[in-house]
């Protein structure tokens, strides 16, 4: 992947691109912090792990053993991504991985919807069975698409202030 595409252009840039160049790092920083907050909250609200396991089982996609493993590790993975986004370490790759995670979540919700399950997505806090007509799949997917957009911005434009990457001379 090309990592040096942002080397300064020698010609005088037009006003709009210049403004974008000035704003973009701050937008990426905001996206990093927002996505980190979302992921950290998602992780913490899933615990203790028994709750998280229950949310995974509600999707009826995995055997009990696999569901338990996912239930234990998913909040931890979210926590790790949140930490990395906060630190700004390997920003582009963590952004891409977070985006991928959102795609997986969206696919899971779509599959639950398509199979006519009545579950809470378990995205934040406790999932599991809900009463018929109390599902909110559309809203959940829209929300995850929003998070996916944040992740995409971070992956495509990783340059941002207050990032460990800068100490290593990356995305300056």
């Amino acid at each position: 992947m090309d990592t040096t595409h942002h080397s300064a252009t020698p010609t005088e840039p037009a006003a709009a691109p210049r403004r974008w160049a000035a704003i973009q790092p701050w937008l990426t920083l905001l996206a990093r912090l927002a996505l980190a907050g979302v992921l950290a909250w998602a992780a913490v609200s899933k615990l203790p792990p028994a709750l998280s396991v229950q949310s995974v089982e509600a999707y009826q996609l995995f055997s009990p053993g696999v569901a338990e493993f996912i239930g234990f590790t998913l909040p931890l993975l979210e926590l790790a991504f949140a930490l990395l986004l906060l630190l700004g370490l390997a920003t582009r790759y963590v952004g891409a991985a977070s985006g991928l995670l959102m795609v997986v979540f969206i696919a899971g919700i779509v599959s639950a919807w398509a199979r006519g399950l009545d579950i809470d997505c378990g995205c934040f806090g406790t999932g599991g069975q809900v009463a018929e007509g109390e599902t909110s799949y559309g809203l959940d997917i829209a929300r995850d698409l929003g998070f996916l957009a944040l992740a995409a911005l971070i992956a495509i434009r990783p340059r941002s202030p207050l990032a460990l990457d800068r100490l290593f001379g990356l995305y300056r």
């Binding site: 993975l77 790790a80 930490l83 370490l89 290593f168 990356l170």
Partner: peptide, 20 residues
Amino acid sequence: KMLGVVGAALAVVLVVVGGG
């Protein structure tokens, strides 16, 4: 440098997920 940074990030993931 990039490999180092990505490696460091992977190490963080491993510590958080594995340790947790």
